[in-house]
Design a protein around this nucleic acid. Sequence first.
DNA 1: TATGAATGAGGGTTCATTCAT
DNA 2: TATGAATGAACCCTCATTCAT
Lengths: 204, 204, 204, 204
Amino acid sequence: MAPYNEDQLNQIRDERREQILAAALGVFARRGPALTKMSMIAAAAGISHGLLYHYFKSKDELFTELVRRAMEGASQGVGDMLDHPGTVTGKLRHFLQDAMTEEARLSFLLIHQTRASEGVPEEARMIIGDYSILWFVERLRPLFLEGQRTGEIAGDDADLLITGLLTAMSGSMILHASDEQNIPLLNPDHLLRMVLAPGHIQPL
Amino acid sequence: MAPYNEDQLNQIRDERREQILAAALGVFARRGPALTKMSMIAAAAGISHGLLYHYFKSKDELFTELVRRAMEGASQGVGDMLDHPGTVTGKLRHFLQDAMTEEARLSFLLIHQTRASEGVPEEARMIIGDYSILWFVERLRPLFLEGQRTGEIAGDDADLLITGLLTAMSGSMILHASDEQNIPLLNPDHLLRMVLAPGHIQPL
Amino acid sequence: MAPYNEDQLNQIRDERREQILAAALGVFARRGPALTKMSMIAAAAGISHGLLYHYFKSKDELFTELVRRAMEGASQGVGDMLDHPGTVTGKLRHFLQDAMTEEARLSFLLIHQTRASEGVPEEARMIIGDYSILWFVERLRPLFLEGQRTGEIAGDDADLLITGLLTAMSGSMILHASDEQNIPLLNPDHLLRMVLAPGHIQPL
Amino acid sequence: MAPYNEDQLNQIRDERREQILAAALGVFARRGPALTKMSMIAAAAGISHGLLYHYFKSKDELFTELVRRAMEGASQGVGDMLDHPGTVTGKLRHFLQDAMTEEARLSFLLIHQTRASEGVPEEARMIIGDYSILWFVERLRPLFLEGQRTGEIAGDDADLLITGLLTAMSGSMILHASDEQNIPLLNPDHLLRMVLAPGHIQPL
DNA sequence: TATGAATGAGGGTTCATTCAT
DNA sequence: TATGAATGAACCCTCATTCAT
């Protein structure tokens, strides 16, 4: 009856699952969970809405799975940046560039939606709960302290500088997502100026 | 004979109307129009949902009235800043401080929601239509060009600087609104650094 | 305090009551009880909706009072017609003319609404309950039988003729009320033809 | 693989649609659009109210579709009658009999409701707009004039006769619908008497 | 696996009724 | 007596979810 064997079926299942997740990420990230309709995800994935429920028990479960993956990605992005060779300025510039790719932005937006929305599944909230902006501050603090020793980073309170940088970056992504026509993404070098010591700012 | 006289009735009506508008601004600005339920506004205003409809014909009309007021406020805020005496840096610092008061932030958020959401009343969209971020860029451009002449402002493309400054500021408001516990508003002086010439940046 | 004495107050009360009843009759008769809003009656009577409740406990009570009066009027109209001197044909023509005056029509319509609508107060339904079309048939039967003896009335089943005449008359009122622009009231002489013996029909 | 094939789905959809339309016609025709609740239609069709919205976008659209069909039917009924062979009297008798079948009556009632009610969808009003009672008068006028030549129809103003006949017929339908227990439909032969010349009236 | 018909809880809005003045 | 602000039940409609095939 079934025209596929076991392995082929598994492969189809996996592909479908990824296809759904990719489609759902785009919609959830831009519209937020409450305004995302299952029918939108189905349309974006090119399948029927009924089929979504073969792969995910509910909208909440699908959303939560995406949040889990987004957090893993974000966490790994910070790690990669810290491992990157070069000066503090170079590492930061790399980080900002990586963070502002299309894919990374969607993850950022999804995390923002999770934090900003009510009615978010409890589990999703718990997953990001520990990774508030403070989590990033702690990861980046050593880098900023080193930058202040080398004179690259401005002498203000390091935590404040980090928070500011991340805030401006995230906010820019949100605004850009809300109106791509009119609001360009922030230039990474302008962002960097917020935290670099005056002497290290280079003209564009 | 008449139970309340004309003046008393007008006073009750005006107070209620303002009370509703204030409550609605808070809810709409944070949640967006689609996720704002009339019952939330009623609860925030401490009245029944039925009473909302004595003062505003519909959710759309209430929202649109708020957008109208927000745009008037935003437009006036820019005008005031340009009239403010002092250096370019001083004017900008004042502008950022004014813009980040509680009241101004709610207006900014509301305008953001109007631009970012689907299903916004057509009239509201028209009201903000002309005031995209470009509108602000044009108003601020003379100031930035002057700042570049006086050496206060960095030499990059002025429009890019303005857009960046406004983006970071707006984004910060959005993030702060989404999670006041964890995401502080950007420090105006950090924001200024994005656009000031290195020589003019002063330690905090 | 009160600028009126007892008698004046009573007079005001009675006038107000009649004013409300007259206004309500027009609205109820044309729109039916369910589609008649208390605010419409108040507007038609030129008073506030709140005042309605000083004179009538509820919409249902107001409606029921009107039905009571309408039934009294209808019942009296039939009695008057039977007492009228002249031939059977003459009595019937008089009856039809009286029944199609503005005032009588509103009463007919109200009774129709009571019978046709759901959600009518139980008491109103009971008041008209006994006065179905059969009530009229019984009152008019002697007249029709006499007319058949004198040769004025056609020889068909008398009850059927009566029912037909009343139906056509009532239906005409309903249609006229629904679209006065386009649907004229039936001509009483055309109506009479439905029941007169061929030899007694006179050209218009 | 596909659960139902295309044909099965089309059949289910068509059946449901007709089932809903039939149920809705009965309710709308008797109660009018404003007093017809979607839950009533759903109950009459034996489905959930939610399902109605899979087949019709709104109450207004459902109502309008019914009005469209009713007008087509009414218009065709008149055409058929004119094509019917036989005397003028025979044609008219046939017309009255056809018009008073259960199905035709519901259509008549629906059109009446459309004309009589406020808050009717604009499109529905436009559909019947051209078909006021005058439309019927014009279609039937040649037949009546011919009847007057042959001596079958009374010599009064033909338009008045037609209007009267249609009014009495429609009114009878409305009354019958409002209280089937007590108000029988008018006998077509009694109706005919309203317009036939005395010599052509035959005993029942 | 895949589809879409079917259900029902929840939010916007209207309107009868109450009540402070 | 008279007004109109205030309340809440009920109806239209949307959309997450289930289920027959």
